[in-house]
Every structure is written in structure tokens, then in C-alpha cells.
Design a binder for these strands. Structure first.
Length: 431
RNA sequence: GACCCUAUCGUCUAGCCUGGUCAGGACAAGAGCUUUUCAAGCUCUCGACACGGGUUCGAAUCCCGUUAGGGUCACCA
């Protein structure tokens, strides 16, 4: 039975790098029917916060990574203490009392030797123990150090594959020494390359949003984020980019992961998000969008027409880059007063179109069967009679109706806006 | 500084293991088509094997070095 673990520390949000590590762990066991263990590394009482635990669990759930078991290191201090005592008794560790510390620390003796990591992604990596200092196992306050708790837990939780970030490579020889001293079986290791920011160095807050939950707020679909993350350091082959997660599960193998650090590119994520948005389930998308509309005061929480929202979601779906773009682009369908973009007004409504608008209002009013096709025909017939090109009036009408120069096709807009509201909005510009 | 990792278009990558296809695709950028604006779509353009040595008839591919980037060196995780 293959068992992997994702072991975040609740001292901050789940960030992009952590999300990708979780993804690769989760992906790895899916096809092999293994177990995904979540271990909250909350040994640092000062910095660990319950709110971060909730945030991390929420983000993992949102991404779709279900865990089979969950453990908290803060509840396992007795276990670590027991194993440290064992090493002490066997003479593999010693105690040390520092004048400025409360109690005695237990420290592991590092003996001179060569240590070899067999990494599934990088191959063999060799270290000389000469470069490794004696390691603190238990701090003088009675809490375990990271490397020690990690080894004890990975062994006791029967973790078969430790898949984690590159930044842990130099911890690995220290941990291998501990496995050997404890007489515990070694797991397989796979070190994932790090994700870098656009300006070089680790992805950090300076280079953009880092928390998975931020991307949720920014209107990215979890499927799109996961697909994008998947393409960082791994490729499904055959030049494929958009790939269903279930297919990725079949194709993925940890040994195929690249060794090179990848740069996080928001532009490509946007493209990916649009790919998913275009084919997303409109009903689900509507459910996501309704709270946003309520918050933007576009609709009333207790009194709105879901069917109407749904029809508009379908209209805007192909052009959305982010879920919440909808609120910005479709607000005129909900607000009583059009939010006029001054630039759009100057560009398209600086001339007086009173005569043309009045005529169009008249024609719309007379239109019997108010369908998109009929609206278009009505408009084009009128323009033909006036001897004008369609675009001469299309843009001014659009701006008068929507306050924007961008949006779906004008006749769709008029149709969804309805006859009365369209007439009203045009009339405002008739002097 | 010491130790470790890495090196293909601006970015993500295919190709590398098992040397021999104009080094392929995607994002971005630029141009065009379509058109009713924006987005999408379609077509085209731009654009890379870090450098230097080997090995070989032949190197992106194998070996060595240099350089560059990154990571780690806590009683943080």
C-alpha cells in the first residue's frame, strides 16, 4: 500500500507551492489506490494558528484533494519524547543545558560517514556527514524539532513516498541518519522543483498573490489552477495543455517530473482559466456568481430571478477570464442607473444621435416578436433606410445601454435588457 | 562562505536515458482574417539548445570545466 503525506505548517496560508506539492502527492496515489495523509505540523505553539489550519483545509478541499487521514503533531509530543529517550539510552544522543534555556535539550550525535539519497526525480545525491552538525531532537522547552518529528511521524505513519519541495533536500541526509539510528525503514524520496516568481527567486508576496485562497477570490476555477500547476514541471505529452484531472491521474508518474524550477506565469493561468470558464457548467457558475452579485448590490439576496442570471452567465461565459469579471461586465443588466464610463461616452456619445435614437426607439416599440433575430433585422432595416453603416450606430447605442464599449453582441444585449429598459436608456440621450 | 540542486524561445515545456528528423507545441508579443465593440476562433511572424573543452563520422542529447540562477546551513517548519 502506497502512502504519501502532505505536511503543512499552520503558520500561514496554503500557498501556490504548497498547493502544487499537495497536488503531486495526491495525484501520485490516485491511480495506485494509495492513501493521502495530511499532517499538520503545528509544533511551534507561538506561530501556529487555528485559523491557518482552517484556511489550509479549506484550500485543499477547494482544490479537490481529499485526504484519507489527518494528524496533528501537537497531539503527539509523548511519542517524540519516547523516541528521543530511546536514542539517549542507546548513547546515540546526549543532553545539553544552555544557561538561557528552561530545560535540557536532547541532541543527536552525527557520526562521520557518507549519506546517499536515492531521489525518484533527481537520482542519487551524496552528502558528507562532516558538513552536518549534531542535530537537536527535543528542544529545551520539551517540543520536538522539525526534522525529528518528521522522521518519527513518517515512519510511524508508514509513509512509503516522501514527495516534497526541493528546499528539503538538505534536510534529507539529516533525516536519513535519524531513520538509521532509530532502526526505522526508509521511505522513497522525491524532491519537487520550486516555483519561482516572475522576478526570480521564490514566489513571494512581492511578486503577486501567493495564497491559494487569493486565487479563489480573484475568480480562478480550481480545475484551471490545478491544471496550470500540473503543467509546472510536468507535461502530459503529445503537446497537450488542457487536460482533465482524471486523465492526468492515468498519465502521471512522479519519475517524469522535471528537475528545473518553474516560473509562475499569471498570463498563462488566465488563459487556462478562460479555457475552463468557456466550457464550465453554467448552473454551477451561476451559483458562484450569485453571491458576488449580492455583494456588489446588483441583486437583492431574497428577491432575484435566478433564470435571468443564468441566461446572462451563458451570454458572458465565453469571454470571461475570471469568474468575477462577470460582475464588472454585466452590472448594467442589474443596476437601475447605468455606470457610464466617461471615456466610452466621450468616444461614442459626444455627437448628437437624438434623431436616430428616437427612430430606433419607435421601431423597437413597434416590434411584435422581441427576439434577437428580429431586433437585429429591425435595426439593419432601419440602417438601410437611413443609408448608414451598421457600426455608425451600434457603438453609440451600446454605450447608451451599457455604459461600456465592451460586451456581448448588441442585439443579445438589447434582448436580455428587454424592450422597456432599452427604450428608457436610449431616451435619456434624446434631446 | 560551505554544502547541494539546476541549465532548450521572454515564460511553461517536447526532444536527452537508447547521439543522426529545418529543435516541436502552448502562453505572451506582433501582423492579418472575421466582425458590431471586447473576448473567443482561424492564419501567419518573431523567438531557444548558457559558454568552453573533449568523446564521436556526427552532440541539445554522453563526459569534464566555467558561468549563471536557485536552495539549505536555527533549540523555525
Amino acid at each position: 500500500m502506497i502512502r504519501v503525506r502532505f505536511a503543512p505548517s499552520p503558520t500561514g496560508n496554503l500557498h501556490i507551492g504548497g498547493g502544487r506539492t499537495a497536488l503531486f502527492n495526491w495525484l501520485y496515489i490516485r491511480a495506485k489506490d494509495g492513501k493521502f495523509i495530511l499532517r499538520i505540523e503545528d509544533t511551534d505553539k507561538e506561530r501556529s494558528k487555528k485559523e491557518f489550519v482552517d484556511e489550509i483545509l479549506g484550500s485543499l478541499t477547494w482544490l479537490g484533494f481529499k485526504w484519507d487521514e489527518i494528524y496533528y503533531q501537537s497531539k503527539r509530543f509523548d511519542i517524540y519524547r519516547e523516541y528521543a529517550q530511546k536514542l539517549l539510552k542507546e548513547g546515540k544522543a546526549y543532553t545539553e543545558k544552555l544557561p538561557d534555556k528552561p530545560g535540557e535539550a536532547i541532541i543527536f550525535k552525527v557520526m562521520p560517514q557518507k549519506i546517499k539519497i536515492k531521489d525518484l526525480i533527481r537520482g542519487d545525491i551524496e552528502f558528507d556527514a562532516e558538513n552536518i552538525k549534531d542535530q537537536v531532537l527535543m528542544k529545551s522547552d520539551g517540543t520536538p524539532t522539525y526534522n525529528f518529528a518528521c522522521v518519527v511521524d513518517d515512519a510511524l505513519m508508514n509513509i512509503t513516498h516522501v514527495i516534497r519541495g526541493d528546499d528539503h533536500i538538505s534536510n534529507t541526509p539529516k533525516q536519513i541518519l535519524l531513520y538509521e539510528a532509530l532502526g526505522l525503514p526508509l521511505p522513497a524520496f522525491a524532491h519537487l522543483p520550486l516555483i519561482m516568481g516572475m522576478e526570480g527567486g521564490r514566489l513571494s508576496k512581492r511578486t503577486g498573490a501567493t495564497a491559494i485562497s487569493d486565487y479563489r477570490k480573484m475568480g480562478y476555477l480550481p480545475e484551471a489552477l490545478v491544471n496550470y500547476l500540473l503543467l509546472l514541471s510536468w507535461a502530459p505529452g503529445e503537446d497537450r495543455e488542457v487536460i482533465d484531472i482524471n486523465e492526468a491521474i492515468k498519465l502521471f508518474d512522479i519519475t517524469d517530473v522535471n528537475k528545473t524550477a518553474a516560473t509562475f506565469d499569471l498570463k498563462k493561468l488566465d488563459w487556462m482559466n478562460n479555457q475552463y470558464l468557456k466550457s464550465a457548467d453554467s448552473e454551477k457558475l451561476t451559483d458562484d456568481i450569485i453571491p458576488m452579485l449580492i455583494e456588489a448590490k446588483c441583486i437583492d439576496k431574497d428577491n432575484f430571478d435566478r433564470g435571468y442570471v443564468l441566461s446572462l452567465v451563458k451570454l458572458f461565459q465565453p469571454r470571461l477570464a475570471h469568474v468575477n469579471d462577470f460582475v464588472d461586465w454585466a452590472d448594467f443588466f442589474f443596476l437601475k442607473e447605468v455606470k457610464m464610463d466617461p471615456v466610452a461616452q466621450a468616444k461614442c456619445l459626444s455627437k448628437d444621435f437624438s434623431k436616430e435614437f428616437a427612430l430606433f426607439v419607435q421601431r423597437l416599440d413597434a416590434l411584435q416578436d422581441f427576439t434577437v433575430e428580429n431586433i437585429e433585422k429591425c435595426f439593419r432595416d432601419m440602417m438601410a433606410e437611413l443609408g448608414l453603416e451598421a457600426k455608425v450606430l451600434i457603438h453609440p447605442i451600446r454605450v447608451a445601454l451599457t455604459g461600456k464599449t465592451i460586451g456581448p453582441g448588441l442585439f443579445e444585449v438589447i434582448y436580455h435588457l428587454g424592450k422597456e429598459r432599452s427604450k428608457e436608456r436610449l431616451q435619456k440621450w434624446i434631446r
